[in-house]
Each structure stands twice: as C-alpha cells, then as structure tokens.
C-alpha cells in the first residue's frame, strides 16, 4: 500500500469514528438551532405565528427596558456567581488534591459533590427554607444575639447567588481538582530549586498551569448559570427577572414562540461572547 492510500484509509476511519458524534450534533443541535433562529425571525400576530421574515422581536427586545434589563440581570448574576464559585472552589480543590492523603481523596471528593445527588429543585427549595426569615441562618444569628431582626435573604438576588454558588462550587471543584492532580510535582520542585517560596511557586507555576481547568469550569458555570431558570425563580422571589424567566413568560400563556426564540438566540450570543473571551484568554496564557 502506498502512503497516500494509507492516509486515505486513516482519514476514512477517522470520519467513521467521528460520524456518529457529528450526526448527533447535526440532528440535535444544528438543525434545532437553525429552526429556532428561523423562528426568531417570524412574528406572532394575534393567535397566529406569521412566517414572514422580520426583525420585530429583536427590535422589541432592544426597545423595551424590562426585556433588556433581563439580560443585564442575567449577566450581572452570572459574573458574580462565576467569580465567587472559582474563588471558593479553588482552595477546596487544592486542599483535596494537596492536603488530603491520597487514600481519602476519593471520599473527600464524594463528600464535596454529595449535594449533586439530590434534586436540583429540591435543593433550591431547601435553600429557600434555610434562608427564610425563620430559617436556620436567621435563627442562629438571632439566637447568638448577633442580630436583632431577621435578615432579608430569601427572595433576593443574594439568595439566588447563594443557591447558584452552592451548586457550581461542586462543579468547579471537580474540574480544578482534575487539573491539579495531573500537575507533576517536578514543577514545584524545580521552582523550589530556583529559590521560589510557596506563594511564588503557586502564583507563578501552579496557578498558570491550572488555568485551563479554572477556565473550563468557569465557562461551564457561565453557560449553566446564564441559562438557568429554576434557581432565580425559586430563590429570587421574582424581584428581578433574568432572561430565562422572561423566555418562560413568553411561552407559559401566550405561546409566543418567535419572541421566545429571539430571546434564546440573544442568550446564546451572550454565551458565544463568553466562549470567545475565554478561548482567547486561554490562548494568550498558553503562549
């Protein structure tokens, strides 16, 4: 066999392996996405959905403050949650990877992700009970005499952020931990040989090398958080709407699928921008 024939065979084999995944993506992402994009350019008139290309739904989004504010709220909450989750998850992952003896690491990880095993919805309602005026936190604080009046936490943005962070810290802990344990101890030894102290080693060696794990987790957090409906709905008390809540509002009674599709496209654009920013940043760091 010639080299060219072998290359062709390899290429065919590669396509063969990739084909199921590509077909899956085509059928369950690309086609639905194109359908959704097309629908976002239609319009609901009265009870009918009119298939005439127009940008009315997008124009409405940018002209109505209540809708635009939904995107702003989504972005603000997502950024806060992502940053807090990274700040909390990194030390936790580091402790598990570096300070917990090897034989207990699996157990520590299981404990860290244990809350994943309960229903997301049930967990959110549980937080509502914990954060309420007569909840555990307020009872503890008033019992200790630290506060005279219960804090208003439930049904606020703070409650939404707490619910999100609790969930995403677990996710980030996993991605960062997997990055940390792959790090060869030789890097730290080399840094120490060159006179770096513990902080310098962490700052100049460990942190940059674990950035891919952080960014992967942060991006996942961003994507899942910005598209989430349940947590803000249960914990936020509808005191501000995020974009997924506004999307649901279009569907619940009025079944305004074109407007919901347009809002979903806008949400996807926000995710795309986040991806581009993450990808670029990672590339620079690696260079």
């Amino acid at each position: 066999m010639t080299a060219t024939t072998l290359e062709d065979a390899d290429r065919r084999k590669a396509w063969g392996f990739a084909a199921p995944a590509l077909l899956w993506t085509l059928a369950f992402f690309v086609v639905p996405f194109l359908f959704m994009a097309a629908m976002s350019l239609w319009k609901r008139e009265g009870r009918e959905i009119v298939r005439v290309w127009n940008l009315d739904n997008y124009a409405r989004f940018f002209s109505e403050n209540a809708l635009l504010q939904g995107l702003v709220n989504s972005l603000e909450i997502t950024v806060i949650v992502t940053v807090l989750s990274v700040l909390l998850a990194y030390p936790l992952a580091w402790i598990i990877a570096e300070r917990v003896p090897k034989r207990f690491q699996r157990m520590a990880l299981i404990l860290a992700i244990l809350p994943f095993w309960t229903s997301y919805v049930v967990r959110s309602y549980s937080w509502l009970l914990v954060l309420s005026k007569n909840g555990v936190i307020n009872q503890m604080l008033t019992g200790l005499g630290l506060i005279a009046e219960p804090l208003e936490i439930a049904s606020t943005r703070t409650a939404t952020v707490i619910g999100f962070v609790h969930f995403f810290v677990m996710l980030l802990t996993l991605t960062i931990y997997s990055n940390l344990i792959q790090l060869s101890p030789n890097y730290r030894r080399a840094a120490a040989d060159l006179g770096a102290n513990a902080f310098q080693t962490f700052w100049h060696v460990v942190l940059p090398l674990t950035l891919p794990g952080i960014m992967t987790g942060a991006f996942l957090t961003f994507v899942l958080c910005i598209g989430d409906y349940v947590t803000p709905q249960i914990l936020g008390g509808n005191n501000e709407l995020v974009l997924p809540q506004i999307i649901m509002l279009q569907l619940g009674r009025r079944a305004d699928f074109p407007m919901a599709a347009a809002l979903s496209i806008i949400l996807m654009l926000a995710v795309t921008v986040a991806y581009v920013l993450c990808a670029r940043w990672l590339k620079i760091e690696r260079a």
Partner: peptide, 18 residues
C-alpha cells in the same frame, strides 16, 4: 410586596412566616 412567587414558593412563604 416582598416577593412575587408561584404556588409552592407562596405556600412556603406563608407557612414559614416569610
């Protein structure tokens, strides 16, 4: 008002004194 909520959250809020 303090909140705008669905059935379960409303019931929870009333029942817990929120």
């Amino acid at each position: 008002s303090k909140q705008v909520s669905d059935v379960v959250s409303s019931q929870t809020a009333l029942a817990t004194g929120e």
